[in-house]
Design a protein around this nucleic acid. Sequence first.
DNA 1: GATACTGCATTCGGAACAAG
DNA 2: CTTGTTCCGAATGCAGTATC
Length: 229
Amino acid sequence: MRDQIGGPYYLGDANGRLEWPDRGVYFFFSPASDLRQMPSTKWRLSRIGTVGVSTGSSNTLWNRLRQHRGNVRGKYAGGGNHRGSIFRLHVGRALIEKHGWHDEYPHWGEQNPDAETTAVREQEHELEQRVSEYIRDLPFLWVDVPGDPGPECDRAEIESNTIAMVSRYRRSAGPSDLDWLGYHSPKSEVYQSGLWNVRHVSDSFDPSVVDQLSEYISSTEALDHQSRI
DNA sequence: GATACTGCATTCGGAACAAG
DNA sequence: CTTGTTCCGAATGCAGTATC
C-alpha cells in the first residue's frame, strides 16, 4: 500500500487540491516518525477509518481526513473541532488524562448546542491545537475503494475486518510502543485494542479481508496535484 | 473572476440498551 | 417481540475565502 501510493502521507502537508479518490479506507500509524526509515515490523496501526458507509452519503475521503486534521486558518487556526471527529475526541481525551487537565476542559466531548458553544470553543482551542499537532504528525496510508455508499459496501467490510484483525482487545500480545498516547485513554476499547477505534475492536474477522484489500491496493493510484483540463 | 477549498454548527443514522 | 431512548460516529449545508 505504501509503495502503491507513494506514502506515507502526513496530514500536516496534505491538502484538498490533491486528487484524492472520492471514497476509500485510511490507516493511521504510530509512532509519529517516518515509516520509510523503519522496518515494516515496527509499524503499528493506530487508527482505521473510512467514508461512505451509509446509504446516500456523498462525503469524501478528503472531507473526512480534513476533519481529523483540524483547521489550518481562521479564528481557530491550528485547532479543530473534536465534535466532528471521533479521532480528535479520543486523542484529546487521552491528553486530558495524561496531563490532568480535567478542570480546564470539563465539556470536552459533550454535545452542547447551547449558547455557551462559543465560549466553550474558545476555552478548548488550546487543547484542539495539541490534538492537531499530534494527529498531523502521524503517518497514514489509504486505499481507493470505490463503490456506491452503503453499510454493506466493501469499504465497510474492509474497515471492520481490518480493525478486528489488528486489534489487541482481549489478546495478550505486548505493546510495541509503550509511549503510545492511547494508553492514557479512559476508554477500554482504545487502550486495550491499541487503536483509536471503538467499534469492531472485539469483533471476529474474516481473514479473506487481506486478499480483498490487496485487490484494491493494486488498483489504487498515487496522488497527483490537480491539473487544469 | 471562477473555482473549489475551508470552517463549523447542525443533522442524520445506526448500535446498544432499557422499558413496555 | 416491539417500541423508545441515549450515545456515538459520520454526513451535510452553506457562508466565507484562498488559490489558480
